[in-house]
Structures are given as C-alpha cells and as structure tokens.
Amino acid sequence: MAGAKRRSAAPVIGVMAVQGDFREHLDTLASIGALTREVRLPEDLEGVSGLILPGGESTAMRKLYERWNLVAPIKALAASGAPILGTCAGAILLATKITDGDTPVLSLIDMEVQRNAFGRQLESFETTLTMQSLKPGGGATPLRAVFIRAPEIVRVGPAATVIAQLPDGKIVAARQGNVVGISFHPEIAGETRLHRWVLEQAAQHARRG
C-alpha cells in the first residue's frame, strides 16, 4: 500500500469474499457499526484499514487467492500495520506451515496448523473457552466458540503468541502483532469481541494513515 494516501476517519473493514461465510462476518461488523467491503480482487483492498479472512474451504480459497493475485496485496496490508483476523480456513491461510505438505499461502503468523485436526463433521462442536484479551494489560475472559471441521494450531513459533487453548491444551488461537488467527467461528456464535478489536485497530491504523 502506498501509505501516503489520506484515509477518512471512519475505517473500512474488508472481508475476503471469494468463498465461505463472509456474509456472517459482514453482518457481525455491521452490527457494531463498521463500514465494510467485500474483497474478491486486489483493487477491492484499496483504502481498506482492516481485513477479515472468513471460514470456508481453504483449498478452494487458496486457488482463488492465487489466481487473482491477492496474496501480495494482503501481505502488504498486514505489513502496513492494519489488523487482520482469520477464522478457521482464514487461519490456515495465515500460517507459516500447514501439516502434511500443503504450501503456506500468506505466512503471516509463525505457526503450524493441521487441517481437520478434530476429525470430520460429526466431531464438529461448540464450547466456551478462555481467550486472552487482545488489548495490552487485558485479562482472559470466556468466549463462545463453534468449531466446524476445525484446524488445530499444532505449534507456535517464537514470533507468535498463544491466545486461547482448549482444556486439553490444544492451541486454537494465536497472534503475531496485528494478525490474529483462530480455529473457530465467533461470527456464527454471536460473539463480537474480535470484530470490535479489528474495528478499533483499523480506526487507529486509518488515523496513522
């Protein structure tokens, strides 16, 4: 991103809309008063101050990202300091390593993820887990989470931090600076906390211009 462009005070949050539950993310963002934009092509990212990568099928998304040259501009947006949140398939796209061979896509969080780590659909589940606040000095609070054929974060490297684990120790959320990847779906659980964080960070990012 050129970075020098003036951005208006109200930030626009982009939601990757090549495939997946992007409408649920758009609805969640609208419910907290955010301005949103569907992103399918690189030009849709212009003027966006925060980005959400929804859930869906990461294999399908990967092909659409690669075909339409979306990887480089998303990485540039992350490098500019804009907040990025990836849920489920979105988190897989953010990882630096994918277990069992698939090449990484965006490599924005120093972590290894394993696709479908909990099993097939019959193992999909809902629970309440404890998540570290994304704000400095914030504590840990319970969060409702739905896991659909979810990935597990099997290893977090030195550049990233674990922000949520299941009671058995499985890592399901990690962060590297302004980029957050989670295995589950707050957008279908009525949770707005992560979306609020994206909105707040995007507003700061827009002010920094």
């Binding site: 090549v18 997946g20 869906g56 019959l122 589940f125 809902e126 739905v146 779906h185 279908i188």
Partner: peptide, 28 residues
C-alpha cells in the same frame, strides 16, 4: 484448572454445527 469458566462442556451435532458447515460452503 480452577480458573476455567463454568460452561466448558463440549456439545457436538448441534444446530449451530450442522447449519454451520453449510455456511462454510457458501460461495462455493
């Protein structure tokens, strides 16, 4: 863990997980 929230039980095959997989297939 003592600090674990009260409602940590895991529920499978709920309406949210059933409907949820279809939500993830959208646009596909």
């Amino acid at each position: 863990k003592r600090s674990a929230p009260a409602k940590t039980k895991v529920a499978k095959s709920t309406w949210a997980t059933k409907r949820g997989l279809a939500q993830m297939l959208k646009g596909g």
